[in-house]
Nucleic acid binder design. Structure first.
Lengths: 253, 253
DNA sequence: CAACAAATGTGAGCACTGCTCTTGACTTTC
DNA sequence: GAAAGTCAAGAGCAGTGCTCACATTTGTTG
């Protein structure tokens, strides 16, 4: 199955290759619909094959197995989330760090509430028996954290990021891959604030997860927009971005 | 199927009822093992029946369907987590609020890391097609948030909880069930700090979830104990518990 | 253009799942 | 002892992931 596009094969795509790519795109599109409708663990290759108008076994000509389709959908979702977050952040002035942070948080929440099942695939409990291949998912999977870290670094370089609060003196040990991100991006922000950034990152996703996965009774933590904006302002404060420069910056739209 | 124990039926349990209860306990125990081994979505009634040494259809004499078993396991997990958290909190002096908060966070994290699949059932993406019945799960499901809220309320009444940070003046709107908790518990702590408590609550679970569900590459947010303790101290600060009174309070064991 | 070979589609089949239903056996109660 | 209630067994249905032998389509090449 010669379909490795990473090797620099300069050949123009043959019609066969084009048809194949189009079919795979169709499969991913149909899979995305099923995912959004019924959740990750209920994704059925046979159902996708039916919708594709083909017998069930034919799917395996294009997708190795169910895991592979899940990986494709994982990358697809990461990319869409990353695109929306990047666009939302870029829409704010470069120097408006707290505004950009707020935009990032609002964009993640909006995408999560619009695509709960896909959000669950990315940030929920892992699909049983499925292990995301790191070499294919780390790239798109780290776009949002990269955006946040770039934001914090920019604010730090501009002198707009200040350590504050109780135990700033205690330098925390960074997690392995957090150190890797620091190196890869050449971050100038000190470890204390980077750890704060990681906490803010996980806190943001914690708040959103509680809202998206409403496990409890009805809506224990179904935060309305205003409460989320309030949380977001507190997180900006925690990150060191200080009391928000634009008090209305947390509005949803 | 007269098995409702909530009605005040004073009848002593007949041998049949005892045997039946024992069998259901066995099923829950086996289900717990399968859950811990293979995850929630992979829980199979047939497999449980095999382990029970009985034919597959016999399971349905004791458990209505797969959802019912999941509900039983959900309650089981909530209770175990609640017990451990309560015990950890009670082990600290009543007036040591930040110590109790730290103990709560450490207990949740320890349980989550020890029981990742069960943690995923409680706080991960919802199992497809399964909706937890509120009337049976809200009770055990709110034990930890109740413990946290009681902690904050006690600190507030003792004059040890202070609003701090930027936008303390902005009173956030509380989520529906958060207001219910406030009423049910007769909390004295003002809404601003209660909202902070909710943020701290979601942040705590966000940090733990990222660690338990290691979706990314290897261990992007596999926080070592020290980093988690650092986060916990920041969250205590955010909750208004002030800079930790016991700097070593965040230790794991 | 014809022939070939690769790519693609087909249908049967295996092992698994949740769940239902009928049948037979057993236990408690009257 | 008979009636009523309970339980286990096994067959069966519809669904799943996945494999394999076979048939068909299709692009390329002699």
């Amino acid at each position: 199955m010669p379909q490795n596009p990473s090797a620099p094969s300069r050949k123009p795509p043959t019609p066969r290759e084009r048809a194949r790519a189009r079919t795979i795109d169709d499969i991913v599109r149909l899979g995305r619909e099923h995912l959004a409708l019924h959740g990750a663990a209920a994704l059925s290759l046979r159902a996708v094959a039916r919708d594709l108008g083909v017998v069930s076994s034919a799917i395996y000509r294009y997708v190795e197995n169910r895991e592979e389709l899940l990986t494709l959908l994982l990358i697809d979702a990461y990319d869409e989330l990353g695109d929306e977050v990047d666009a939302a952040v870029a829409a704010r002035p470069e120097a408006d760090f707290s505004g950009r942070f707020s935009a990032l948080g609002v964009a993640v929440r909006r995408w999560a509430l619009r695509e709960p099942a896909r959000y669950g695939l990315l940030f929920g409990s892992p699909v049983p028996g499925y292990r995301a291949p790191a070499e294919r998912t780390t790239g798109p999977g780290t776009r949002v954290i990269y955006a946040l870290m770039a934001l914090l670094d920019g604010a730090y370089r501009a002198g707009r990021l200040a350590a504050r609060g109780g135990q700033a003196a205690v330098v925390p040990p960074l997690a392995a891959d957090l150190g890797r991100i620091r190196r890869d991006m050449g971050l100038a922000v000190p470890d204390i604030l980077l750890a704060r950034g990681a906490l803010v990152w996980t806190s943001l996703f914690g708040a959103i997860s509680f809202e998206v996965f409403g496990q409890y009774g009805a809506d224990t933590f179904a935060a309305p927009d205003e409460l989320f904006a309030h949380h977001l302002a507190a997180l900006a404060d925690l990150a060191g971005l200080g009391p928000s420069a634009d008090p209305a910056g947390g509005r949803t739209e």
